[in-house]
Design a protein around this nucleic acid. Sequence first.
DNA 1: TCTATTCATGAATTAAGGTTCATTATGGCA
DNA 2: TGCCATAATGAACCTTAATTCATGAATAGA
Lengths: 214, 214
Amino acid sequence: MAIAAVRLNQLVETKARILDAAREAVALSGWKDAQIALIASRAGVATGSVYRYFDSKADLYAQVLALVSEREVAVVAAIVEAEGSASQCLVDAIYTFAVRAMRGRRLAYALIAEPCEPEIDAARLKYRAALADQIARLVRRGIADGEFVEIDANVAASCVAGAFMEALVGPLAPEAAPDSDAARAIAQSIAGLSARMLFRHPAPELTPVSRVSA
Amino acid sequence: MAIAAVRLNQLVETKARILDAAREAVALSGWKDAQIALIASRAGVATGSVYRYFDSKADLYAQVLALVSEREVAVVAAIVEAEGSASQCLVDAIYTFAVRAMRGRRLAYALIAEPCEPEIDAARLKYRAALADQIARLVRRGIADGEFVEIDANVAASCVAGAFMEALVGPLAPEAAPDSDAARAIAQSIAGLSARMLFRHPAPELTPVSRVSA
DNA sequence: TCTATTCATGAATTAAGGTTCATTATGGCA
DNA sequence: TGCCATAATGAACCTTAATTCATGAATAGA
C-alpha cells in the first residue's frame, strides 16, 4: 500500500534538509565538522533520525559530495556539449570551473583537496574521474576536428583535470587571501596552460568566456 | 653523561626498523594496514615501544611519508639541477618520476592518491608542494632562457605537477594491470603533454631520457 | 474515534584502535 | 658482582564518535 503523498513529501524534505545541513557545515568549516550529531541538530532532527535516511556517515557524505559534484560536472558537461570549437570550449570549461570554485571557496577546497576520512576521499576519486570523463569527450572531439594533437584522450584528460585542480589548491586554501581579481587571473592562466597542452597550433590567444550560470 | 655509542646505535637502528616496517606495510597493502600494533610486530618490537620513537601514529606516518617523498623530490631536484636545456630537463624529470612511480606502484599510489587519514593526507600536501617547488625552479629557468612562455612560475608548476600526478592515479591504482610497456608509454605521453604546456616553440619532439638511478 | 503503522527521539552502547604506564629486562660501569 | 639508568613490554585504559534501540509521538485509514 502506497504511503500518502503528504507524508512522502515530508520524508523527502527531511532528507533534503539533512543533506543541506551537511553541505552547509562542510562549506562553512570543512570536514572536521562533519559529525552526525552536529548535522542532525543543524537540520533540526535527532541524531538517530539521520540513520533513517542514510545508511551511515560515509553514505551521507558520499551523497553530499555527489550532489555538489554532479552540479559541477553538469556545468562542465554543458560547456563541453556547447557550440564552438573544441579549443574554445576547453578554455571556457576550465575557466568557468575555476571561477565557480573560487566563488564557493571553502566548499571547493573540501571537495578537491582538504584532508578527510578515507571513505569520503574515495568518493572524491569518483568525482575527479567523472570530471576527467567530460574533458576526455572534448579532447576526442578536438582530435577528430584536427584542432588538438593526437594523443590518448584519457591520459590527456587526466592531465588537464589534474593541472587545473592542483593549481586551484593553493588559491582555494582557507589561509589564502580571497582576491577575486587574482582569482580570475589564475583561472585564466590555468585555462591558457591547459589549452597549450593540447592545441595543435600555437595558442590562438583565446579569451576565456565565463559561462557561469546566474 | 653521554650514552655509550653502541647503545645509541641500537636506538637509531630500532627507529629505522620501525620506519621500515611501516613503509613496507604501506607498500604492501596501503594505509589500511597502517596500525601501530601491526607495525610494531613487523618491526619486532612491542606496541608501546613505538611511542618511545614517535610521538604518535600521525608522527610516525608523517615521517614515513617524508622519508619516501624526500627521495623522490631529491631525484627530481637532481634532474632540475642537471646539465641541459630546461625543456629537456622538464621532460626528463617528469618521465623519470613517472617511471619510478610505476616501479613502486603500490607505494606510489599510497603516496599520491590512496584515501587515508586526514593527518597523513596533510603531510601529503607538503610533499606535493615540495615537488611543485622543484618544478617551479625549472620553469623560472626556462622562462629566463626564453625557452618557456612567460607565465606565473608557481601556477605553471602546480599545473605540471597536478597533470602528471593525476595522470598517474589511474595506472597506479591497485586494480590496474601492471604493464611496463604501457607504463612507459603513459609516462612519455605525460611528459610530452606537460612540456607542451610550457614550451614557447612547437614541441621539438624531445625524447625523454630516464635518469633513474640504479 | 480508534488503531496499526511509520517516524522521531536521544541517551546508552559499541567499536576500534591509539596511547599509557606499572612492571620487567638489559647492559654499561665501578 | 651488584647497581642503576635506560629501554622494552603489552595488557589495560581511553577517547571519540558512530550507531543502535526501547520508547513515545504522529498520522492515515477504517
